[in-house]
């Protein structure tokens, strides 16, 4: 009886989590380069009924078992590209295809981002909105225009029309980008699951686009459907809990 209660309770917790993740996806609908997440569930261990003292037909060919509810098995990140939006701003960059910009954190470690909404600091370095330096060639302090080619070569153009090459932007690539750790603020860190980054030029499958940003890859209709599924499953399992409550009440009323 009490296990039935914990079955229902495990499902309420799981569905609550699904609603939380869905809400987070919807909340980040307008976050640059946000990658949506989805929750995967699994069934739990199966217990033999006979061992629990229930009356079970002894001749059963396979042991009669009952499940013990559900739990989250994974929160998966969908790494597909978001919608690219042309902003016309000179220091907005988007990565089309795999690859991450490299960002220097204040503690000296490296973080990775796809949100290329950069600005220039006093020394001519590009920085993220938080003020962390991006691993890119230093830009001259003068009023020059900047261009970045699709394969990552940065040039400055003087008002006179002279083109000054500044260097090459290298991107970080991962064997398993789904294993990156989210640091918040659109930043990711490498983890044992993601593997070490490979620092390479934008390759045949990757291009850098200037004057554009990558939007979130959240599909509102999918999220609303998930919201409905989560909410209905929640109610369904709440009803299972209620039924068990009534059964226990019935058992309590055997002798009044």
């Amino acid at each position: 009886m009490l296990r039935g209660l914990s079955n229902a309770a495990s499902a309420l917790v799981a569905q609550q989590l699904k609603l939380d993740v869905t809400a987070n996806n919807v909340a980040n609908l307008n976050t640059t380069a946000f990658k949506k997440k989805d929750v995967q569930f699994k069934d739990l261990l199966y217990q033999e009924e006979a061992r629990r003292g229930n009356a079970v037909l002894p001749a059963a060919e396979k042991p009669v078992t009952a499940g013990t509810g559900t739990a989250m098995s994974a929160i998966r990140t969908d790494l597909s590209d978001g919608v690219f939006q042309v902003t016309g701003r000179e220091l907005d960059f988007a990565v089309v295809g795999p690859g991450y910009f490299r960002v220097q954190l204040p503690d000296g470690s490296e973080a990775y981002t796809r949100a290329g909404e950069f600005r220039k600091d006093g020394d001519g370095f590009l920085v993220t909105p938080q003020g962390y330096r991006v691993q890119m060639p230093q830009l001259p302090a003068e009023e020059h225009e900047f261009r970045i080619s699709e394969d990552g070569i940065i040039t400055a153009i003087t008002p006179a029309g002279e083109v000054i090459p500044l260097g090459q932007v290298m991107l970080a690539y991962f064997d398993n980008p789904a294993g990156l750790i989210k640091l918040g603020g659109n930043l990711y860190a490498a983890s044992p699951a993601s593997g070490e980054p490979r620092i390479e030029q934008p390759g045949p499958n990757t291009q850098i686009k200037q004057f554009a940003l990558e939007g979130a890859n959240v599909d509102l209709i999918v999220e609303m459907t998930n919201l409905i599924v989560g909410q209905r499953n929640f109610s369904l399992n709440a009803r299972a809990l209620q039924t068990l409550d009534e059964m226990m009440q019935t058992a309590n009323n055997i002798r009044r």
């Binding site: 296990r3 495990s10 069934d43 009356a55 499940g67 559900t70 599924v229 299972a240």
Partner: peptide, 25 residues
């Protein structure tokens, strides 16, 4: 025994409902 059998049934139903969003269940 009738009451106990219904408890087992309810546990199975509860497990099915708990896993109604589990892939491949």
């Amino acid at each position: 025994s009738g009451m106990m059998a219904q408890v087992v049934r309810q546990e199975t139903i509860g497990n099915n409902l708990a896993n109604s969003d589990t892939v491949g269940f």
